Simulated scan of single mutants.
Amino acid sequence: MEFDLIARHFTRATPGAVLGVGDDCALLAPTPGMQLAVSTDMLLEGRHFSPADSPAGLGHKSLAVNLSDLAAMGATPRWATLAIALPEENDAWLNAFARGFFRMADLHGLELVGGDTSRGTLTISITVMGEVPPGQALRRDGAQTGDDVWVSGMLGSAALALAYRQGRLFMEQIDAAKVLPALYLPMPRIALGEALRGLASSAIDISDGLLGDLGHILKRSRVGATLEFSALPTLPVAQAYLHEAVARDCVLAGGDDYELCFTAPPGRRDAVQAAAAAAGVAVSRIGRITAEPGLNVLDADGQPLPIAHTGYDHFAA
C-alpha cells in the first residue's frame, strides 16, 4: 500500500514544520520577515541516471541537485517534498534511496514534509523550499560591466566521468576513479551561497554546463563576457586529457558540476575570497563581464576557442 510505503521509508519527525507527512497538506511557518525560495527538479531513469546506479547515490544526488538551486539564490534550506514513481514496490531499493536522501537532508537541516508515490517508470521529482532575507537573494539579472566572473570548486569532472562511462573518452581506470564521484555524489554549495549575500552581483548553479548557465546570467543582465580557458579550475587528473576536444567540451559545456558561477565587482575580490574560505570552498576568477553582448573563451595565446555547443539540452533526442 502507498501509505505503508511512505510510513516505512519517508516519515520522520519534522520539528521545523507545523505539520509534516501524513495529512493532505503540510503546514509550514516560515521565519517572520524572511522570503521563501522554492525550486523543483525532476530526474528520469534513462535520461538523467542509469537503472544500474546505486539507489543510495541516487537519493543523495536527487536532493543535492535541488539544493544547488537554493545555493545559487543564497537561500538556507528548510523543507522539501518528494514525488517518486516506481515500476514496482521494492523495499530494499527504497531503503537505500531514503538513506542517501536523508543523509543529504540532515547535512543541510532540511525536513521532508510531504510528497506522492505512484507506479510507473522510475521518476523522481523534488521541490525544495528555503529562506533568504528580503532583498538579499542572489539573482541572475545583476551582472554589471567590469564585474569579475567566478566559479566554485572544479569544473568538468562529472562530464568527464559520463564521457568515460559512455565510451566517448578513453581514460585510464585510475584516472576515471578520481572523477566518478563528481557524477554520482555532487555537493551543493549552500554555505558559499549564503556567504555571497551582499557580495555577488549575480549567481547561478552550473547544472547544464558553464557556458550555457553563464549565458543565462548574460541574457538576464543584458551583458557579455570573456573567459580565459586556462583559468578554469579542473582536477589535475583532468588536465592530462584537455588536448582532446571532447574533454575541453566537458569542462566548458558538460554540465552536472553543481558548482556556483557568480559575478562580483573587482573591488570585492578580497571579500569574495574571505567568504569562500569561511564556507570551506575554493573559488576561481575566470573572466570578466563586458558591455558587448556575446560570450568568448580565449586560449593561452588570447585567441578565441571554437565552441561546439554551450550546454545540455533537456529536449534533445
Rank of each mutant, 00 (worst) to 15 (best):
M1Y: 07
M1V: 12
E2N: 09
E2D: 11
E2L: 11
F3L: 06
F3W: 00
I6F: 05
A7F: 04
H9N: 09
H9I: 02
R12L: 12
T14Y: 07
G20A: 04
V21T: 12
D24F: 12
A26E: 12
L27D: 05
L27Y: 07
A29S: 07
D41N: 14
L43V: 08
L44C: 07
E45S: 08
G46Y: 15
F49C: 10
L58Y: 04
L58E: 06
N66M: 08
L67R: 00
L67Q: 02
S68R: 01
L70S: 01
A71T: 15
G74C: 13
R78N: 09
R78E: 12
R78W: 11
W79D: 03
W79L: 03
L82N: 06
L86K: 00
L86D: 00
L86G: 02
W93T: 01
A96S: 13
R99P: 00
R103F: 00
M104K: 01
L107W: 09
G109Y: 05
L110I: 08
T117P: 00
S118D: 06
R119E: 04
R119Q: 02
G120Q: 12
T121N: 07
T123V: 10
M129F: 14
E131D: 01
E131K: 03
A137V: 06
L138V: 10
D141L: 09
G142H: 13
V149L: 13
V151F: 01
G153P: 03
M154L: 11
S157H: 09
A158L: 08
A163I: 01
G167S: 09
G167N: 10
F170K: 11
E172C: 07
E172M: 11
A176D: 03
A177S: 15
K178D: 00
A182I: 04
A182N: 06
Y184E: 11
M187H: 07
M187C: 06
M187Y: 08
P188H: 01
A191C: 05
L192W: 14
E194F: 03
L196Y: 09
L199F: 15
S201Y: 10
S202T: 07
A203Q: 00
A203C: 15
S207K: 05
D208V: 11
G209V: 14
L211C: 03
L214I: 05
I217P: 00
R222W: 06
V223I: 01
G224L: 09
T226P: 00
E228T: 05
L235A: 14
V237A: 03
Y241C: 02
L242Q: 12
A245D: 15
A245F: 04
D249K: 06
V251T: 06
V251S: 03
V251H: 05
L252V: 12
L252D: 04
G254K: 06
A264K: 11
V272P: 01
A274N: 09
A279W: 04
A279C: 04
G280C: 14
I286R: 07
G287P: 13
T290R: 05
T290C: 06
L298F: 06
L298H: 08
L298V: 02
D299P: 13
D299Y: 14
A300W: 08
A300S: 12
A300F: 05
D301E: 14
P304A: 02
I307A: 07
A308M: 08
Y312C: 02
Y312Q: 01
H314Q: 03
H314A: 10
A316Y: 07
